[in-house]
């Protein structure tokens, strides 16, 4: 039973390696973004020693580790799923004894491991270039952060799949997918610590699922939360995982019914 997904995993690695140049350029883009964020923040910090409760070292660590988490968590499949639905290619999966969504999940786990290798390499280059003062976490904080990253990956996957599944109703789900991507990029805490935003907005974002993708794991990593916040955070993160899973399952089942009704 699991052998089929192991093969999917192997093929995914081969697939990435087929496009060496594409893959490398993607990584180059990542390094440029990383440098941009770094210089932006170091410029902001020219005057004050502390800004929004962050020292310069802390913010650099935030950006760097945030980037690492982002590479691990934000690996989209929504485009592939939406295309398969729109083109009818999904049919050839539905007639075979394989779970389509799990198939994509496995493919993306493979991509994630590939990204991990690359990002570690990039971060290494970055550290050599800029020699930032890195803040290393304590062992318990690191452990909590890792658990949270795994949970964030699940949350991301369910949201991302849900968006792709909307293609059952609207052409390739362009609109909703774009909106979700924007939301996730800007309110996950990937670009900046959400705490720099106005209090009200910050409070709202803290409850929404997106902050649990990057901001919460990063806070755990940097040890910024008291025990109660850690507990509440995990509670909310797990709640969102459950809700987004139910959403994905419901959309998928309803969507399939529709696909069966109108044909693909």
């Amino acid at each position: 039973m699991l052998r089929k997904y192991r093969t999917v995993f192997k093929l995914s690695w081969q697939n990435v390696l087929q496009y060496r140049l594409n893959f490398l350029m993607g990584r180059v883009r990542n390094i440029i973004l990383l440098l941009t964020l770094y210089f932006l923040w170091t410029t902001v910090f020219v005057g004050p020693a502390k800004l929004f409760g962050f020292t310069q070292e802390q913010i650099v660590a935030y950006v760097l580790i945030g980037n690492l988490f982002y590479s691990l968590i934000f690996v989209h499949s929504d485009n592939d799923i939406a295309n398969a639905i729109a083109s009818g290619g999904l049919s050839l999966f539905l007639v075979r004894p394989i779970n389509y969504l799990f198939y994509w999940f496995v493919r993306r786990v493979a991509s994630r491991l590939m990204h991990l290798l690359m990002t570690v390499l990039e971060t290494g280059i970055f550290i050599l270039l800029v020699r930032p003062d890195l803040q290393f976490p304590t062992a318990p904080n690191l452990l909590l952060a890792l658990v949270s990253v795994v949970l964030a990956t699940a949350l991301f996957t369910f949201l991302d799949f849900s968006a792709g599944t909307l293609a059952f109703w609207t052409l390739r789900a362009y609109g909703p997918r774009f909106a979700l991507r924007m939301l996730m990029d800007f309110t996950s805490g990937r670009m900046f610590p959400l705490s720099i935003l106005p209090q009200t907005l910050f409070t709202v974002l803290n409850v929404l699922p997106f902050s649990f993708l990057i901001f919460f794991p990063l806070n755990l990593y940097q040890g910024r939360l008291d025990s109660l916040s850690v507990l509440c955070g995990f509670g909310l993160q797990i709640t969102w995982i459950g809700l987004s899973f139910l959403l994905m399952r419901e959309l998928w089942q309803q969507g399939l019914r529709r696909y069966e009704a109108v044909g693909g």
């Binding site: 089929k4 093969t7 999917v8 093929l11 697939n15 087929q18 083109s87 290619g89 050839l92 075979r96």
Partner: peptide, 16 residues
Amino acid sequence: KNQLWWDLPAQETFIL
């Protein structure tokens, strides 16, 4: 419609 993996040789899809 095709089920073969576009970027890999056909025999990989056979194995899958």
